[in-house]
Amino acid sequence: MVMSETADSPLANQAQKSLESENIETGEPKMRARDVDVYYGSKQAIDGVNIDVYTEFVTAFIGPSGCGKSTFLRALNRMNDTIPSARVTGTIELDGDDIYASGMDVVQLRARVGMVFQKPNPFPKSIYDNIAYGPKIHGLAESKSDLDEVVEKSLRRAGLWEEVKDRLTDSGTALSGGQQQRLCIARAIAVDPEVILMDEPCSALDPIATAKIEELIDELRGRYGIVIVTHSMQQAARVSQRTAFFHLGNLVEYGHTSDIFTNPVEKRTQDYITGRYG
């Protein structure tokens, strides 16, 4: 039987482990997407996606390259607005409010739904100013000491404080790739968002830096809703509790990570996670 074949794999074991942390009572979803289509010009990149994102769980998006994971992720905080040809239909709600409604303030939305990119993109400013950037533009800190506090707290949460506390005035771009990525996470945390979207945050990092980020994601879970796009099945199995499998713009399967990896319903999912294509 094919099923047992996957159940015995190390992948499945990891997914099994993350199941333990999953027995939390599920409340209302933080974000809810219904019948979402995304077009680039006349080309459809996402077709009728329904998904719920919970603060309690890390949600992983997996799927072959070009299937629309980034596109859908960017729809969740309206970063697609920056691409002139992109168009989104359907509804995406944050705490029940439609984020594409005309009354929605994109700036407020992005402050609530932050984003970490595939390639670390610290600003060419000091480490301190990188973190202070968001709080400053949103007026989150009353005074310099408030700001200092936010910076320290964010860096601590991102697990970077010990490494950079003596060099806060150095340029953010002078850090290593892994440090830069944690700096970007710290920067996103600093505005105290409700959801953090991460698009392949570890693809430019070595295994040690990756492990640090994964650890960090695990610590942030519960405080922030986290969505992570990844090409690594192992990573999805390690860090997430919900997994969504995308294929050719469709959401093929969405469910408990452990189920997706041990007991996928769809043949396409099965093929993808066993490495038969993708």
Binding site: N77, M79, T82, V107, Q108, L109, R110, A111, R112, G114, M115, F117, K119, N121, P122, F123, P124, Y133, G134, I137, H138, C184, R187, A188, V191
Partner: peptide
């Protein structure tokens, strides 16, 4: 990426 980073923080 620099610009996206800033916009994604909710900067105008």
């Amino acid at each position: 990426a620099m610009k996206d980073g800033s916009l994604a923080m909710g900067a105008t």
